[in-house]
């Protein structure tokens, strides 16, 4: 059901591909000589959730800072709603959630929210914001008294305060418990469903997998791959050495068969022994399994999995 819906949404993006934000051929070199972005291009469309993935220092936050107009590129152009991101009118249409160590601690949640609502001509009604961010009951607390997860939710409310058309969320669910994380995911999805664009950076690959219509993996300042979660996974699998990667499965089992025998089985691309469990990747899992079970009558603890985004990510960003 959700796969069908995702598919329908994916079609609507390509149809109405008006760019909401774009980075084109951006190079960013800091004064200390560090090359943070190297000819990076990225386009965000209306109503899509894009996850920016990459290891630490890959250039994720630099890209987000450029889009927010907090920093200027060394070369290339940044456009938001076909305007300069530094213009006040552009900022009225964007909302930002950054990883903030500390917001002013001696202001109440309610006060913080209303200060930010005041920046916009048509802010989201206060009660709606509090509900969306799950802040009921803690509105009168000082920011400094909040738990880590509550702080994240309060910052999420600030990002949504102006009913923005483009939202940047930097690691939005850090420190949230599972329930709160699911709640925030639901809010993020409903933003996209209302035609808002969301750019998400996250370390939780699970989050990118669950939320993003499109994942952009960057490393060393360049886009190394871009696509749906499924596409990124298969690309990662291809990088890992599988040829017909779409059907790649990971097989885990306990077996006494030597590595050479395993590699000779049709479909097997790699095999590895991890704490007594043999991990085999296969592009023809059914054939591999039939052969495997025939060869080792004592094989047990069998599991078959699809490759996770994490595997793809590691394969893509290693070296």
């Amino acid at each position: 059901m959700s796969a069908v819906l995702d598919h329908i949404q994916a079609i609507t993006f390509t149809a109405s591909s008006a760019a909401v934000a774009s980075l084109s051929h951006i190079t960013k070199r800091y004064a200390n000589g560090v090359l943070a972005l190297d000819d990076l291009s990225l386009t965000l469309h209306r109503g899509e959730i894009v996850a920016l993935l990459g290891p630490n220092g890959a250039g994720k936050s630099t890209a987000v800072k450029l889009l927010m107009g907090l920093s200027a590129p060394t070369s290339g152009t940044v456009r938001i709603f076909d305007a300069d991101p530094r213009h006040a009118t552009t900022r009225l249409r964007t909302g930002v959630m950054l990883q903030v160590g500390k917001a002013p601690e001696m202001l109440r949640v309610r006060e913080h929210i209303n200060i930010f609502r005041g920046y916009y001509p048509a802010p989201v009604p206060y009660a709606d914001l509090v509900r969306a961010a799950g802040l009921e009951g803690i509105e009168s607390r000082m920011f400094g008294q909040l738990s880590g997860g509550q702080k994240q939710r309060a910052l999420f409310a600030l990002a949504l305060a102006g009913d923005p058309d483009l939202v940047f969320l930097d690691e939005p669910t850090v420190g949230l418990d599972i329930e709160a994380r699911r709640g925030m995911w639901a809010e993020i999805r409903s933003l996209a469903a209302r035609g808002k664009t969301v750019l998400l950076t996250t370390h939780y690959l699970e989050e990118a997998d669950a939320l993003a219509h499109r994942i952009v993996v960057i490393n060393k300042g360049r886009v190394i791959c871009e696509g749906t979660a499924a596409e990124v996974k298969s690309l990662g699998a291809a990088t890992a050495g599988a040829s017909t990667s779409r059907t790649l499965k990971i097989i885990r089992c306990v077996t006494d068969l030597p590595k050479a025998t395993l590699l000779a089985i049709p479909g097997v691309t790699t095999t590895e022994l991890k704490v007594g469990v043999t991990v085999i990747s296969s592009t023809e899992p059914e054939r591999t399994l039939r052969e495997l079970l025939a060869l080792d009558q004592n094989l047990h603890s069998l599991e078959v999995q699809s490759p996770a985004l994490e595997d793809a990510f590691l394969a893509l960003t290693s070296n």
């Binding site: 927010m68 107009g69 907090l70 006040a88 900022r91 009225l92 964007t94 930002v96 950054l98 990883q99 903030v100 160590g101 500390k102 917001a103 002013p104 930010f116 920046y119 916009y120 910052l155 600030l158 102006g162 940047f168």
Partner: peptide, 18 residues
């Protein structure tokens, strides 16, 4: 100094606040 070091100032600058 505190708002600069914690990133709060950056969030403010990214907002439409003059």
């Amino acid at each position: 100094a505190s708002e600069f070091s914690t990133g709060w100032l950056e969030l403010k600058r990214a907002s439409p606040m003059p």
